[in-house]
């Protein structure tokens, strides 16, 4: 069970003077159960790529397979695909529209044709998974704080019971606590259900903390695809494409330059702490 992208290209305004590559010959496999970080500067093709994963955009070249089937072949059930691969857009709270939170989350499963009972069970479960407090279930979604609105929007996608959850910058504009709460919830959900998660983010610190694999996009191509420690070793190349290593990596480099014998393959706070304590002999 996996999503396979086989030589996928996407050209905007194909067959015109304005034709421009948004994706260039992408080959990727997204197996079940991975926590993948997708990073890249603005305009690098990340959002275009994720919109291919559930068939919202069709490649202008190459093929995309979901569980072995070409998703753009005749007879492929796109509606089913969209419930299996759940996409949470940037600022998803702009898409809330129902009179209360619970009805909003019910919208997706109801459209799948599920019974009322099953729909409500799923909505309840999804709101629990994102840690949304029950006493606000019947509030208007528009009266909630930014972080709570975003949870509701994510729950709306989770209620479809997707196998793959794709989140496009789910923490943009949230305060630090709100950011940690959302990402901790997603990590817990992944641990509990084994769902595949693709996290698009501009925060190298969040990426370092949560994911087991990083895909780096640059100008429509994959620049790196590896475990975090390997990818962040290429800090100069990352900076050249508008990105960076996590701050912990730079902090450890500075300590090393100042003569402390610490390793610099460090990307998270816990690793940095352990490494410094090791050198101090504590």
């Amino acid at each position: 069970m996996a999503i396979v992208l086989d030589h996928v290209s996407y050209i905007y305004e194909k067959d015109t003077e304005m034709a421009a590559f948004a994706l260039k010959d992408i080959c990727l496999t997204i197996p079940d159960g991975q926590f993948i970080g997708l990073i890249g500067h603005t305009g690098s093709g990340k959002s275009t790529l994720v919109q291919h994963l559930n068939g919202l955009l069709a490649p202008t070249g190459g093929h995309i397979y979901y569980n072995g089937k070409d998703i753009h072949a005749d007879g492929f059930d796109k509606k089913e695909l969209r419930s299996r691969v759940g996409l949470v857009f940037q600022y998803p709270e702009h898409q809330l529209f129902e009179v209360d939170v619970f009805t909003d989350v019910c919208f997706g499963p109801k459209n799948l044709g599920l019974s009322r009972k099953e729909t409500e069970l799923r909505a309840f479960e999804a709101l629990r998974q994102v840690g949304f407090p029950e006493e606000y279930f019947y509030q208007s979604p528009f009266d909630l704080s930014g972080g709570q609105k975003r949870r509701v929007a994510i729950a709306g996608v989770l209620a479809m019971k997707p196998d793959v959850l794709v989140l496009d910058e789910p923490t943009a504009g949230l305060d630090p606590k709100g950011r940690d709460e959302i990402l901790d919830r997603i990590a817990a959900l992944k641990a509990e259900t084994g769902i595949t998660v693709v996290l698009v983010s501009h925060s190298m610190e969040d990426i370092a903390k949560y994911v087991d694999r990083i895909i780096v996009m640059n100008r429509g191509s994959v620049l790196f695809d590896d475990v975090p420690a390997e990818v962040f070793r290429h800090d100069a190349e990352l900076e050249a494409v508008g990105l960076a290593a996590p701050q912990m990596t730079y902090i450890m480099r500075t300590l090393r330059r100042r003569g402390m014998e610490v390793g610099t393959d460090v990307t998270t706070l816990e690793e940095a702490e352990r490494e410094i304590l090791r050198v101090l002999g504590k």
Binding site: D175, P176, K177, G178, E205, P246, Q247, M248, I251, L269, A272, E273, I276, L277, L280, K282
Partner: peptide, 23 residues
């Protein structure tokens, strides 16, 4: 700051947790 839903810079947090470990 944490109780106000905020944070501190990463290096400040690192120094703070080292402090708690007795450094």
């Amino acid at each position: 700051l944490k109780s106000l839903r905020l944070d501190v810079p990463q290096v400040t947090m690192l120094a703070h947790s080292l402090q708690k470990k007795g450094v």
